[in-house]
Amino acid sequence: MTDGQLILIIDDEPQIRRLLLLTLEGSGLKVTQASTGEEGTIRVRTDNPDLVILDLGLPDMDGIEVLKEIRRTSRLPVIILSVRSSESDIITALDLGADDYLTKPFRTGELLARVRACLRKQQAVEDQEPVSFGTLTIDLAARTVEKKGVPVKLTAIEYSLLALFVRNAGRVLTHKFILEAVWGMAYNEETQYTRVHVGHLRKKIEDDPANPTLIQTESGIGYRFTKL
């Protein structure tokens, strides 16, 4: 279902570009490349890609600026490439509308999974069919949740959380994003809300709440629903 889609790589490192090119083309995707931020913003318009892989450390301009430029005109999926220990940059990028992130060095398998998740999300956004994740089944239209066939009783907030996760399955969600979506704009600093309610939600839907597999914690950033 992702075959033939075009991926734009914006990175100044030829080796990384080659690696990405090989990996993506190897799994049936088409690739176009840009080595500077400026070239990248042009290609977004001219090549009309389905997804952008954007390196934050570009020689001519900050990757964040490129992202802002893209988001001014489109909802095009963007995956951020970054290095470890710049969590704040990643959070900024995610809050500015980036769809996911990868830290260098990364494994190619991980890269492909992220790319696929982002492309799939575009298609599955308003899917009305019940979805299953392991022993958990969620019917977003009927607002029901079942675990191993047994209905799970959720609070309103827990259901809102779960629905948010399911709609964005595979995608990383920052605390701020979750807080704004579930509690509203005024609560976007209250990270303890997400911690506590995610904890409660895990107890109800995870097979082993001590070792969660459905709601994953992304260190210092937020949560991601389901294992990739």
């Binding site: 303890q192 914690t217 210092g220």
Partner: peptide, 18 residues
Amino acid sequence: PRLDWCDVRDLLNACVRK
């Protein structure tokens, strides 16, 4: 340190996974 509320169980799990 950028202090933020944190679930210790989550923290330990993340460490093991890492």
